[in-house]
Simulated scan of single mutants.
Amino acid sequence: MTFANNLKARREALGLNKAALARKVGVTDVSIHYWESGSIEQIGHKNLLELAWALDTTVGALIGETEFMEAKWKEQYSEANPA
Protein backbone atom coordinates (compact mmCIF):
# COMPACT_ATOMS: atom_id res chain seq x y z
CA MET A 1 0.00 0.00 0.00
CA THR A 2 1.07 3.55 -0.60
CA PHE A 3 1.39 6.30 1.96
CA ALA A 4 -1.88 7.80 0.72
CA ASN A 5 -3.72 4.49 1.15
CA ASN A 6 -2.16 3.82 4.54
CA LEU A 7 -3.04 7.30 5.79
CA LYS A 8 -6.67 7.05 4.73
CA ALA A 9 -7.07 3.50 6.03
CA ARG A 10 -5.64 4.38 9.44
CA ARG A 11 -7.75 7.55 9.71
CA GLU A 12 -10.90 5.64 8.86
CA ALA A 13 -10.00 2.79 11.20
CA LEU A 14 -9.89 5.30 14.05
CA GLY A 15 -13.19 6.85 12.99
CA LEU A 16 -11.70 10.26 12.32
CA ASN A 17 -12.86 12.57 9.58
CA LYS A 18 -10.38 14.69 7.66
CA ALA A 19 -11.15 17.83 9.68
CA ALA A 20 -10.59 16.08 13.00
CA LEU A 21 -7.26 14.66 11.87
CA ALA A 22 -6.25 18.04 10.46
CA ARG A 23 -6.88 19.69 13.84
CA LYS A 24 -4.75 17.07 15.60
CA VAL A 25 -1.90 17.54 13.14
CA GLY A 26 -2.14 21.31 12.83
CA VAL A 27 -2.87 21.46 9.09
CA THR A 28 -5.97 22.05 6.99
CA ASP A 29 -8.41 19.36 5.99
CA VAL A 30 -7.48 20.22 2.40
CA SER A 31 -3.91 19.10 3.16
CA ILE A 32 -5.25 15.79 4.49
CA HIS A 33 -7.32 15.42 1.32
CA TYR A 34 -4.31 16.06 -0.92
CA TRP A 35 -2.13 13.63 1.02
CA GLU A 36 -4.79 10.91 0.90
CA SER A 37 -5.40 11.42 -2.80
CA GLY A 38 -1.69 11.26 -3.57
CA SER A 39 -1.79 14.72 -5.17
CA ILE A 40 0.97 15.90 -2.84
CA GLU A 41 3.62 13.35 -2.01
CA GLN A 42 6.08 15.54 -0.13
CA ILE A 43 4.69 15.73 3.36
CA GLY A 44 7.62 16.97 5.40
CA HIS A 45 9.29 15.33 8.36
CA LYS A 46 7.38 17.24 11.05
CA ASN A 47 4.01 16.52 9.44
CA LEU A 48 4.85 12.81 9.13
CA LEU A 49 5.69 12.69 12.83
CA GLU A 50 2.52 14.61 13.74
CA LEU A 51 0.41 12.28 11.58
CA ALA A 52 1.92 9.18 13.16
CA TRP A 53 1.32 10.58 16.65
CA ALA A 54 -2.27 11.63 15.87
CA LEU A 55 -3.02 8.24 14.32
CA ASP A 56 -1.33 6.26 17.10
CA THR A 57 1.02 4.53 14.69
CA THR A 58 4.56 4.85 13.38
CA VAL A 59 5.98 6.73 10.43
CA GLY A 60 7.21 3.37 9.13
CA ALA A 61 3.68 2.00 9.13
CA LEU A 62 2.37 5.06 7.31
CA ILE A 63 5.01 4.97 4.59
CA GLY A 64 4.83 1.20 4.11
CA GLU A 65 8.33 0.49 5.37
CA THR A 66 7.61 -3.17 6.18
CA GLU A 67 6.19 -3.88 2.73
CA PHE A 68 9.15 -2.14 1.10
CA MET A 69 11.69 -4.07 3.16
CA GLU A 70 9.98 -7.41 2.51
CA ALA A 71 10.04 -6.75 -1.23
CA LYS A 72 13.74 -5.85 -1.08
CA TRP A 73 14.58 -8.99 0.91
CA LYS A 74 12.71 -11.16 -1.58
CA GLU A 75 14.49 -9.46 -4.46
CA GLN A 76 17.89 -9.92 -2.85
CA TYR A 77 17.15 -13.56 -2.01
CA SER A 78 16.00 -14.37 -5.54
CA GLU A 79 19.13 -12.76 -7.01
CA ALA A 80 21.36 -14.72 -4.62
CA ASN A 81 19.50 -17.98 -5.20
CA PRO A 82 18.42 -18.18 -8.85
CA ALA A 83 16.17 -21.07 -9.78
Rank of each mutant, 00 (worst) to 15 (best):
K72W: 06
G26L: 05
L49A: 06
T58I: 02
A9H: 12
K24E: 10
K72G: 05
N17S: 11
G44A: 02
L51W: 03
V25Q: 11
M69H: 13
F68H: 08
T66H: 12
D29I: 10
L55I: 05
R10T: 09
L62N: 02
A22C: 08
V59L: 00
T66N: 10
E41Y: 02
H33S: 14
N5F: 00
L55W: 09
L7C: 04
R23L: 12
F68P: 01
A52M: 04
L51E: 03
W73R: 15
K46I: 04
G64N: 04
A19M: 11
L14R: 14
S37K: 12
K24Q: 09
E67G: 07
L21P: 06
I40Q: 05
A9K: 15
H33G: 12
G60K: 00
W53V: 05
A13S: 10
K18A: 14
L49C: 02
Q42A: 12
T28H: 13
V30E: 13
V30P: 02
E70R: 12
Y34E: 08
R10D: 05
E70G: 00
R11N: 14
G26V: 03
L51G: 06
I40E: 00
G38F: 04
R23M: 09
T66V: 11
L48W: 03
K8G: 06
G38K: 03
K72Y: 05
D29L: 01
S39H: 09
K72C: 10
Q42M: 11
F68V: 08
W73T: 10
W53E: 11
E70A: 12
I32L: 11
L14F: 09
L16V: 14
G60L: 01
